[in-house]
Structure formats: structure tokens, C-alpha cells
Write a protein that binds this DNA or RNA. Structure first.
Lengths: 216, 216
DNA sequence: AGTGGTCTAGACCATGCGGTCTAGACCTAA
DNA sequence: TTAGGTCTAGACCGCATGGTCTAGACCACT
């Protein structure tokens, strides 16, 4: 029995076991839901573990056994959210899209983002909020499943600008940030209760990005 | 001496004494600065009073005497921030602006917002974050110094649309929200260290809103 | 000098936090 | 059956929180 403590002397929990197929959170749907609820309502630091445990019915012992600490639970949850978000963008890759048709692609990206937002607004908020956490925190959290959307977007925009589809007097970084911001706030722009109207509004947002709001 | 307790039985603190010229926070600049620091870094709920006290050197007794509770301090601070923000927009009213020149006015609004952002980014974040707090919280907090920017912006845009300056196929609410979002995220768009470049970038942002990013 | 009232300092309180620890249920292999 | 190992439940710990309370400094007035 006394050996127990020796074996417990792992001390350094292996966070990398939390991501991918072995993610233990996949086996506890109520815990996942409670975590998304709590972490999307408050920042990672301020979210209450006890609240999550109460909501999900899991015991503290189990949680610490599987996830090591609060941060482990957060990482496991973000892993699932990132996978979920990516699942909305994978179909895009298999479609036959002309990579030189920037606004055509942006339209599909907008639609995929919209669908992700509508599927679970809490996840959308989490995926957006992560980017506003401190750089130090992001580095620690993304050590495991780095999803560098934005780097890719910027590179692509820089490439597209050469084709003349985007006004060259704007710095590519500015254009990229502008688009990021609009996508990150899509939930505030598209609020119509009718599903049909939503895509229409999203496309109007795209039109604004493309042509501006000025009248003829 | 025992009467002391009776007199203390106010219990209901008069928050309305916290706003305007009698705002006690005006007499404690270090406290104001510490409060802005803490409240801008965390949400109102999660900000630490003890941290604010430590930073500012004020004692707990004094703080509760003057502000009633944590919320009182928050209200007093927001009052000062709102006044500060408004001070950047008052000059706009005295300028001779053609109210029918929407984009001319938007340019001035953009410039004033930029100046406010640059003057104190923490204040900018606070003034933006307030709008994302729960409706219940906002109602309680704004009972005292209601600054309904956005209602006004929407009404103005609806008015301007009739003049044909804005493409009428967009719903006025969408246009208003779009502009709100861009202004709220101006700090992310304008990051150039050179002051001269900043206004230039801000004007480019305005151009994007007006004409879009598409090339000729 | 004495009094009523305001303001300050900080000890103190209950509560809730993240995290640890242990007793024991449960499973599997010998 | 038994021993090793995994997992669960929840009591418990130290700590930080927002808020209360009191002793007394200070001030203005009589």
C-alpha cells in the first residue's frame, strides 16, 4: 500500500495524452458540455472547476486523475473544439475551388464559419477568445495542437494580392486582420432567427468586405 | 459610542453620489489608475479588490467608506472613463460638419476613436468590454450614466441611407453593427508604432468600409 | 476641553477556490 | 483467492476573495 505513493510520484502529468483519439474527455460528454459552458462564460483562469464538477457530476478525484489539473481539462476541451471547427473546413479542401478566386473561397470560408457559429456559439466564442489570451498562455496551450489559421490566411492574402483581386494600396496584414475581425464577430452580425436569412446576411457581410457600404 | 453602529446602519449605499463632479475617485488618482489596470485586465467580477488596494495604497476601510462596495468602485471608474471618452467626441460637435456627409463624419469619428485608443488602451478595452457584459449587469451599471452611443449611430445611419450615400440593399442595422465592430477593434487594426502612420492606417480602414477591398 | 461626525487602518470573517490525499470499489491476471 | 493497478468519491488543505467591524486619528464647532 505504501508503494502507492511512490507510483503516484509522477508529478509531471503527461498532457500530450490528452489530445487526439485518446482524449479522455471524449468518454465524458457531460463533462465536456459542462467545461464548454464554464470556460466559454469565464476566462480559463476564472472558470470554476467546482462548478464544472457539480454540473457534470464527475468527482474531483476522477478529474485530477484523468486530466492532471485545470489546465489539462482546458487543453483537452480545446483539442475537441479545434477538431470540431476544422471539421467544418475540411469539406472545403475536397471541393474543386479555384484558388485564384479569392472571393469565391472567402464565401465558402464565411459559410463554414457561419455553420460553426450556429452549431455551437459557445465553441465559437472559445475559439475566438483563445486568440485574445496572453501570448505566454497560448504558447503553453498550443504546444500540443497548434492550429495556426491566421498565419495561413495572411500568407494566402499576400499571394492573392499579386493577382490584382485585392486593392494593392492596402497592406496585406491590414486586409487579413480586417477579415479575421469580421469572421470573429460573425455571431454579432448574423443574428436573424430564420436560418435562410442567415446565409443571406453572411453574404451581405461578404459584399461589404468586397465592395464597401457606399452607394452607387 | 454605541450610537456609531446605529448611524452606520445606512446599509443602502447611495451609488448616485459616485458620478459627476462629486466622484470621490477624482480625489484618488492612484486608486483610479490601479482600478483601470485591474478592471481592464479581468472582468468586473473577477478583478481583485485586494490587488487594487495593494497597488494604490488605499486601505479597505476607506474604499468601502467612499464606494460602498466593489461595484461602486467600478461604477465610479466607468463614469470617469465615459467622461474621458466623450471628451474626445465633444470637439466634433463644435466643428462645422455637414451632417449629410456621412463618410466625412465617419472619418472624424474614426479619428476621435483612434485618439482615445492611443491615449489609454486600457480605457478603450473597458469601454468596449462593457458592451459585452450581461444585459442585467449593464442595466444595473448604466442606471447612473447611460451613454447610448449605438442607438444614436443606428438612427443616424437609417437617416443617412435615405440620402443614397449607403447602398440601400444592406439593412441599416447590419451596417451599424459592422461599423461598431470595426471601431471596437480599431486597436487591433492600427498597431503601427509611428504615430503618423496610424492615422493613415485608420483612414485606410475607413476606405475599406466605404469601398471594400476588391481591386479595380 | 469636550463632542459629534468623518475617515482610515487593518484584523477579522465566511466563502469558494485549485489542488491533495486516502479509503475503497472495481478489474484483471496469476 | 489474492495482489497490483486503475479509477472514483469526497473530506480536507492552504490560500485568496469580497466584505464587516472596531479602535482611534482627525477635524470643526461650541
Amino acid at each position: 500500500m505504501a508503494f502507492r505513493e511512490v507510483f503516484r510520484m509522477k508529478k509531471h502529468f503527461d498532457y500530450s495524452a490528452l489530445i487526439g483519439e485518446s482524449n479522455p474527455l471524449l468518454r465524458y460528454p457531460e463533462l465536456l458540455d459542462a467545461a464548454i459552458d464554464e470556460f466559454s462564460a469565464k476566462s480559463c483562469e476564472d472558470a470554476s472547476l467546482n462548478e464544472i464538477l457539480k454540473k457534470s457530476g464527475m468527482s474531483k478525484g476522477s478529474l485530477y486523475h484523468h486530466f492532471g489539473d485545470k489546465f489539462g481539462l482546458y487543453v483537452a476541451m480545446m483539442d475537441i473544439i479545434v477538431q470540431k471547427k476544422l471539421s467544418y473546413f475540411y469539406p472545403l479542401l475536397s471541393e474543386e475551388l479555384d484558388t485564384d478566386d479569392f472571393f469565391g473561397i472567402l464565401k465558402r470560408v464565411m459559410k463554414a464559419t457561419l455553420e460553426f457559429v450556429l452549431a455551437d456559439e459557445r465553441m465559437h466564442h472559445l475559439s475566438v477568445r483563445v486568440m485574445e489570451e496572453s501570448a505566454e498562455f497560448r504558447k503553453r496551450a498550443f504546444e500540443f495542437f497548434v492550429p495556426d489559421y491566421f498565419q495561413a490566411l495572411r500568407a494566402y492574402i499576400r499571394y492573392v494580392m499579386e493577382s490584382g483581386q485585392i486593392d494593392t494600396r492596402y497592406p496585406p496584414e491590414l486586409v487579413a486582420k480586417f477579415i479575421e475581425i469580421v469572421l470573429a464577430n460573425l455571431d454579432k452580425l448574423v443574428t436573424d432567427p430564420e436560418p435562410d436569412k442567415r446565409l443571406e446576411t453572411a453574404n451581405q457581410v461578404l459584399d461589404i468586405i468586397q465592395h464597401g457600404i457606399a452607394g452607387k
